[in-house]
Design a binder for these strands. Structure first.
Lengths: 329, 329
DNA sequence: ATGGTCTTGGAAAACGATTTCCGAGATTTT
DNA sequence: AAAATCTCGGAAATCGTTTTCCAAGACCAT
């Protein structure tokens, strides 16, 4: 394998000089730079990232942490988009995405997790779908050892940023739109997983709307489950005018239930997954661009790794009405 | 960070001895082993995989290669299952899955690809969804430099194995079952992507059935596209008795078209994705356990890395009839 | 000239493992 | 009892980088 040593010999300079050129350090003349770059070209040299990581304890090795929970396969699409977005942008930014692991951290202590990450020379993390109960992750963020970007979480400190869309506003908007299109004062609102960060936010948005519009709001926990949404709808929808769901999957469950009951109630969802096109009826929803969100998260992590301070990034969303033709391809 | 050196000191032995114990080499007494293991326990030592990889040029660093093609988000589920299956098993087998990258290899020469993999100290690859046109990958396999496991491909040599289900038999079976349940001699068969390995195999299975049962077979290329399947169905289904599709997504497209035309024709699919539950009508399909397939691929790769010879592994499948209730969760 | 600051490039020590080789006892053979 | 063979554990080189420190020369001001 052609190493930095070979490049040095070819260029007639020292190893350290090559390294400096490659990493853009100062104190090296234009002339030497040219010699080195030429040698790199000629030898087709590609630095060994493993060695670099070992040596510097820094070279951008990043872990992608997916908390899948026990969600249905129907929403795998979301995670896939996250993954594709992350890896795509990471490659462009010269970050190595080490592993996509979900709950292989379960039953591990903070120390064990840290050691695991260290053993992989990982310096940065992107965390998707963290819940309020993930104490280990919570403490990992507090510890400020790694640079961390969380998605769909409000957690920010000196070494960690948060990327998300304004969940409350989005829930407010989509419900308001649905309300405008259909009269009604009596709302059945199905919430997401109990300890999810987004669940609380979306509920807030809904509550604000209820207050403003003087609605009667009936809240039930659907746990992001299609089946539970179905059952709750069967049970409670008859007496309500509109069903607002904190996720598309639940909206689909609700819609199916309504169709089975043969009554009509407007339903709206949240996420914008493809499956919405197959629900049987059109519904309003909040379209999140998961790929873009992931891509932004990577960029933010890069910034943190380069010494930036933690901050919150709020991305925009889109209200859409999804029907079969839109998802056809 | 606690290193092998610390362990050695704690146990009162040499560094090399610790390494031997950790890697199960011979020539070390039970007593010494115990001392070392105890020290490992006490210090909570976890070996640094990066250093190991650098040193041994071997330690299981594996790349997961996903060829997404331009498939719809509706089948992201399949890739997600592949990924989850791969990573899950890899962790158990102590393999580091380095990156999940798809077509970041496009427009790269064989040499560039090799150098990239080398620079990451990657010694093994798992390739999903390779097509007959992927010359670079083709040559990469021929080169026998890396241990490779391909999924859904018949490519085998000394250093590479292939894992798949018997596509021809599966297509034969599902079509036959559908045929038995519904009379008919005139088949519209919609094939997958032109250069896919699976496409040819599935077609073979269908052709064998046609011969055996003396069917008239009308074959059209649907490119795994829901939209194309829809259009082909609108155009050709009226004169046929049954629509057999080489993928669920196409089956859904076909079914929707039939519903729009308000005529009934039995349709069968292939894959067993969740979306089938939302197609509106029940359909037969071949259920592939993608997670299991991926898991087997990882195991096979491990075997190759340990010096095993390349071979072909054929996994089984299941014929199912998918309806909404089955996918509800 | 003399001394002091800048610039540039090299020597060498990490980083944390693996692995080869070697020597000293212990054990067996003659 | 001497010689040959085995076992076991240690010293040291190695993998391919990064990074620290230092020396030599160039340049400037005194």
């Amino acid at each position: 394998m052609v190493s930095i040593k070979d490049v040095a010999k070819q260029a007639g300079v020292a190893i350290s000089t090559v390294s400096k050129v490659l990493n853009g350090y100062p104190n090296v003349s234009e002339e030497t730079k040219k010699k080195v770059n030429q040698a790199v070209e000629e030898l087709n040299f590609v630095p060994n990232t493993v060695a670099a990581a070992l040596s510097s304890k820094q070279s951008g090795r990043v872990a992608l942490l997916l908390n899948l929970g026990n969600v249905a396969q129907a929403v795998d699409e979301i995670y896939m988009q996250y993954i594709a977005g992350t890896i795509g942008r990471a490659v462009e930014l010269n970050l190595d995405v080490i592993t996509v692991f979900d709950s292989m951290l379960k039953n591990k202590s903070l120390e064990e997790v840290i050691r695991y990450l260290r053993s992989q020379s990982i310096t940065g993390l992107i965390i998707f779908g963290m819940s309020k109960e993930d104490w280990v992750l919570q403490r990992l963020i507090d510890a400020q050892i790694f640079k961390i970007v969380t998605v769909d979480t409000p957690l920010v400190n000196a070494t960690s940023s948060a990327v998300w869309i304004d969940q409350a506003a989005a829930q407010y908007d989509v419900a308001k739109k649905t309300l405008k299109e259909n009269k009604g004062k009596n709302i059945l609102y199905l919430t997401g997983r109990k300890n999810g960060y987004v669940t609380a936010e979306r509920l807030k948005g809904m509550q604000r709307l209820a207050e403003e519009e003087n609605l009667s709001l009936y809240v039930r926990n659907g746990e992001f489950s299609e089946l539970q949404a179905r059952n709750l709808t069967l049970r409670y929808a008859k007496k309500r005018d509109i069903v607002v769901c904190a996720s598309d999957l639940m909206a689909i469950g609700a819609m199916r239930a309504l169709m089975d009951m043969d009554i009509f109630r407007p339903v709206c969802g949240f996420d914008g997954i493809t499956l919405m096109g197959y629900a049987g009826k059109q519904m309003n929803t909040v379209k999140q661009d998961f790929r873009r969100i992931a891509s932004e998260a990577v960029e933010e992590l890069k910034r943190l790794l380069d010494g930036g301070e933690g901050r919150q990034i709020v991305l925009d969303y889109e209200l859409v009405r999804m029907k079969y033709d839109d998802v056809l391809s």
